[in-house]
Computed example of a mutant assay.
Amino acid sequence: MKLLPVLLLSTLALTGCVTTESPTGRNQILLFSSQEIDQMGASSFEQIKKQEKVSQDPKLNAYVDCVANRITSVLPKSNLPWDVVVFESDQVNAFALPGGHIGVYTGLLKVAENEDQLATVIGHEVAHVLANHSNEQVSRAKLTGTGMQLADVALGAGGVSNKDLYMAALGLGTQVGFILPYGREQESEADVMGVELMARAGFDPSQSMVLWQNMAKQGGEQGPELLSTHPSHGHRIDELTQMQSQVMPLYQASKGQVQNRCQKTK
């Protein structure tokens, strides 16, 4: 154990650590370039598409595409094409990956009752990518695993590979049975950024509280997969309530410009 600090310092020195600030001013250590983290996201997304059943329902896909496209259209780098895939699964879950990838499980659509509530989740997940949370998590996994070799030893009994650990760090723990959860500060940042994104895209931010109330009713005390590592329902709803005065003007200014409403299918 005495060697651990030395190994961590060596990893930092060899990797080319970059320290930056998150959208709320937190210090972030990012060990990977944007190109590297985008490649991890693309690789993980391809793996998931092979593992999960992709929905072929044209109306369902059109609905999710509509919501996701309106969210991504207001991003600073709106020229980036985002790949949106709907997965046939009872999981109440969704995710976004670096490189422009969004996955939505059909189970979520039973809880997100309208376009505004679905936009709450997609905005939140996209915000994780926008705030470099994926890079931060994978960097943390690399540091705490000292180059991933020690992580292999620690996780070997569970059969978790390097690729699986990276996927878990990207927020895909439910796919690999191992979770490296986002911290509360990261979750709060994603809430703040996500509700602003949805408001700018013409979605009603007041529906964000309703969505998380619906989530709180699912799956008993633990809630659905999407909430497994998130702050408490009450804390999240309180924060979103306090934000309404800031984001409602954005919604009022943008809702009249929306030409394509997203209609949920039965």
Rank of each mutant, 00 (worst) to 15 (best):
M1I: 05
L3C: 02
L4E: 09
L4M: 10
L8P: 00
L9V: 12
S10R: 03
L12V: 15
T15E: 14
T19G: 01
T20Y: 00
R26M: 10
L31G: 10
S43R: 11
S43C: 06
S44E: 10
F45G: 12
E46Y: 05
K50A: 12
K53P: 09
P58R: 09
K59G: 15
N61I: 08
N61W: 03
Y63T: 01
D65W: 06
V67C: 07
R70T: 03
L75G: 15
L75Y: 07
S78I: 05
V84M: 03
F87W: 04
E88M: 09
S89H: 05
F95L: 13
A96I: 11
L97Y: 06
H101V: 04
I102V: 11
G103Q: 07
L109R: 11
L109K: 14
N114W: 11
S134M: 11
R140H: 12
A141K: 01
T144G: 10
G145H: 10
Q149M: 09
Q149Y: 06
V153M: 11
A154F: 15
G156Q: 05
S161V: 02
N162R: 15
N162A: 08
L165V: 06
L165Q: 14
Y166R: 13
M167I: 02
A168R: 04
L172G: 00
G173D: 08
G173K: 02
Q175D: 05
V176N: 05
F178C: 00
Y182S: 12
G183D: 13
A190I: 06
A190L: 02
V195I: 10
E196F: 00
E196Y: 00
G202Q: 05
P205Q: 11
M209F: 02
V210E: 09
N214R: 08
N214T: 03
M215R: 01
K217E: 11
G219K: 03
Q222C: 03
P224C: 08
L226F: 04
T229N: 12
H230K: 08
P231L: 04
G234D: 11
G234Y: 00
Q246T: 14
V247H: 14
M248A: 13
M248T: 15
L250W: 10
Q252R: 14
A253E: 15
K255D: 07
Q257D: 14
Q263F: 08
